[in-house]
Design a protein around this nucleic acid. Sequence first.
DNA 1: CCTTTCTGTTCCGAATTTCGGAACAATCGT
DNA 2: ACGATTGTTCCGAAATTCGGAACAGAAAGG
Lengths: 269, 269
Amino acid sequence: MDKNNEIAGIEKSMIQNQNKTVVKSMELLNLFIDHERLSLNEMVELTKMPKTSIHRMLGSLEGMGFLQRGEDGKFSLGLLFLQFGQLVSERLDIRQIALPEMSALRDKVEEAVNLIVRDGKEAIYIEKLDTPHPVRLYTKIGRRSPLYAGACSRIILSFLEEKEREQYLREVELVPIGRGTITDRNELRKTVADAREKGYTISYSELENDTVAVAAPIFDHMGRLHAGISIAGPQERFTEERLPALIAQLTAAAERISRALGWRRAKRS
Amino acid sequence: MDKNNEIAGIEKSMIQNQNKTVVKSMELLNLFIDHERLSLNEMVELTKMPKTSIHRMLGSLEGMGFLQRGEDGKFSLGLLFLQFGQLVSERLDIRQIALPEMSALRDKVEEAVNLIVRDGKEAIYIEKLDTPHPVRLYTKIGRRSPLYAGACSRIILSFLEEKEREQYLREVELVPIGRGTITDRNELRKTVADAREKGYTISYSELENDTVAVAAPIFDHMGRLHAGISIAGPQERFTEERLPALIAQLTAAAERISRALGWRRAKRS
DNA sequence: CCTTTCTGTTCCGAATTTCGGAACAATCGT
DNA sequence: ACGATTGTTCCGAAATTCGGAACAGAAAGG
């Protein structure tokens, strides 16, 4: 159902210090992003690690509550994640501040509205309001996408500090995800520059086919990028004539949220 | 704001095999239940572990995404928990099934409705619908309470398999949490027996003062206890005259959910 | 009913890791 | 400029993990 699986993987390189066991344990946990339930031997096959090691680690992970084992012996993610997930969610104050604006925006444009923050080289959805028509679906909060793909991600990339942005643009590997994913480094550069200038960006089928998204940046009181907000929906509803209005309302909402965070003036690069 | 902190702690005893490092790391993570942000030295003080060890573990935890460090050097829970929390939440099919019934019930009685499952010796809230009046508050999903306290918890305890139930009743240590928490083993036994007989249980100020809750069990297709559902609210609104109606509607909803899970008949103990 | 196969668990010596005190570096506050 | 506090690195001793192999238990198959 989802095309972006391995995306959540953690960069193995660049890290020195680390407790090897803990990292390997993480590898096990990550398996559960794509697999709901796994047996010991399934994990052995997937990871190629020795059975004994996995067996030992599973013991730990279960003891800590990260995993739990069903009566058939298979493992699944533990309820502990509910608790911590909730904690993290509560502590993201940006969400509380942005929610009213997002809600108003959703009602005005009748399209899905997303709130995104950066997490390393990825963007992560921290709130999502769906269009009211379909059943209110607890969609992919927590979903990740690389910074180069999708309007929401790109707006974050575009307003990163120059140094970081340049390094990313130089080093990133552009893997296609949707039909419209930008895979040419120069094109990406141009789009990013355009986004910085205009204060918004548009994506066509970059993450999901036939889906269009418009995104704008949110700044904090230091004038730094804090989050991104986007409107997304099916291509048919995002016509040429409608776009200008959508963009106006989106950027207005983004500015109001920024101001609520203590932001003052547009910062000239 | 909350009185039950350390409750989420994991039983250190009874576990042999375990990777010591991983478990210690868990101790660090658990600090973040009560503390939003912590510096290295604060953790040293709280845990009494040697600074070097903590430093090393923090490196690992950060690398894995469990923790992230702000620009001031302090650590906080990583956004990774959002992703896994969401995954767990999505995969709890009981929630999807129960939600419509819970929503209907909430609208009928206009009180908060909770859905609870068991996790070891604790109960954990997996869904919560608040009464519509106050702002819809993203309350304590993921919150835990011991099985002996509160209607929701007790209903789960009451319908556990006899052997397990007896062992729990024998061994549990009854620590008071709210003004009405049952701390007498015999009284608890009586209340539990009563709950089994009647199919519901009521609590007065057991977890939170001046709060009343009524709870009923939900069974799966094997006739085993699968979850608990409760109505909770301030004492003033739970009058003697109103209770019978509340109980009737609650148990009816619980039965409908049980049937949706494939449950057939009442099981005579 | 016995055999085969597949899964999960235990054992144990060799080897890698962690452990943690102490020294060092980097900030901060005064 | 100085002391105090916090974060980081070093290193030998000690404890843990590692993983092959053997074992146990259940399910599948004849």
